[in-house]
Amino acid sequence: MKTFDLYATKVTSIDEIKSRLEAILSVKFFLHDSSFWGAYYRSDNEYAESIRILPNFNGKELLFEELEEWPVIVEVNSPEDPSQIISHTETSLEHIHRTEVQTGEWAKKYLYVDGKLTLILERSLI
């Protein structure tokens, strides 16, 4: 099963969130540039977990229109320990939603509401 977590923050600087996450998670982020995403940070580890820190506005448009009040987005793909990020309030991150996918079988989407994940969508991929 693959898990994808989406976080957002009111902190306006991707550099500030990068520094906070590096200190908390003991990972190193590297600056990347994309014609679509703009400048963003990415960290990959040997266990296939990846984290991207993205500005929600790439200079032309909002990347996540439904999250327009959040200037910085953090995507965590296949988190080794999802609670590791959620439990650290000093990151200033809000857990927005989680998607779980069992390749070729099913997909589930959860919203993070009142401190817990609430299933909002489930579909078969068969």
Rank of each mutant, 00 (worst) to 15 (best):
E100Y: 02
E49N: 10
K18R: 12
L25H: 05
G59V: 14
T89H: 10
M1Q: 09
E22G: 06
N56G: 03
R123F: 09
I24V: 10
W37P: 06
L6P: 02
E80H: 11
P82L: 02
F64N: 07
W37F: 15
L125N: 07
K2V: 15
K109A: 08
S19K: 13
L119P: 08
S83C: 12
L67Q: 00
W70K: 05
W70V: 03
S87C: 13
S83D: 15
E69N: 13
F36D: 15
F57L: 10
V27F: 12
L119Q: 01
L25V: 04
Q102G: 09
A8V: 00
L119E: 08
N58H: 06
S26G: 12
S124V: 07
H88E: 13
V76Y: 04
D15I: 04
E22R: 01
K109H: 13
S34H: 10
L62E: 07
L125Q: 05
E80R: 12
L54A: 03
I73H: 02
K2G: 13
E61L: 14
H97E: 13
Y47G: 12
D114I: 12
R52C: 13
H32K: 10
S92F: 08
Y112G: 00
D5E: 10
L125G: 03
I53S: 02
V113K: 10
S50C: 12
L93T: 07
P82M: 03
V76L: 01
I53G: 02
L63F: 06
T3E: 13
A48I: 11
